[in-house]
Amino acid sequence: MTSRGRRGLFLTGAAGLALLLLWGTAGLPDFGDYQHLYGLTLNAESVAATRATNAVAAVTFDYRGFDTLGEEFILFAAVLGTALLLRAQREEEEEPPEDMAPDRRPPHDSDAVRELCLGLVAPIFLFGVYIVVHGHLSPGGGFQGGVVLATAPLLMYIGGEYRGLRTVTPEAPLELVKGAGTGGYVLIGLSGLWFGTSFLDNALPRGNAGDVISSGTILALNLAVGMAVAGGLVLLLTEFLEQTLVLRSRSRK
């Protein structure tokens, strides 16, 4: 199809689709006019029932925790998939990058940048952990905290310590963290089956709402997700990084 024909076809269809969507959304209640029992009930009872003060966390990890199990495995599959798709580069081109040489640093960074980045690693790491373990209390949780955790090793990369990145985050432990997190989610679900009534049922003491150690499996699942996301994301980004590094070292030769 010519570029013009394609645009014509799309614009005609898009006009129809726009009308359809506008017409359909016109059937929704007015924005802000929320009356559904589902949300109202959960807002009213979830704190008492789950001891998690964050109702979103109660939905994500308790009432609809099974969706989140699927979500974890979507992430897991994507990490496997990216490794599958980017694999050949590594087989073909893997050579010790010069960055690995003891006295070498990528030329672009200054010491100030380097120190700033490295200085940030520890606080960011702590911040990530904080977000993960407070997911049932306040906004945040395993996913958000996991992403923050994953940025800590990347800062080391920006700071020029690729060597450091490799020592801090070698692949095997990362795989283990990711696998333990993802598999852990299933195992916690199975514990509900074993000790409780059903899969993903809470089998742990709930504690008091508002405490850091409370809400039973919601906290445990948050930890599992935090591990899975942090491990998975670092692996995913290093898949892209490996290639970049290899290429960078080649172009400098």
């Binding site: 645009r7 076809l9 799309f10 005609t12 269809g13 898009a14 129809g16 689709l17 009308l19 359809l20």
Partner: peptide
């Protein structure tokens, strides 16, 4: 791009 144009058109027609 062609495929996306077609599916937009298809959605509109179906709707």
């Amino acid at each position: 791009g062609d495929y996306t144009a077609w599916l937009t058109m298809g959605a509109a027609l179906l709707g």
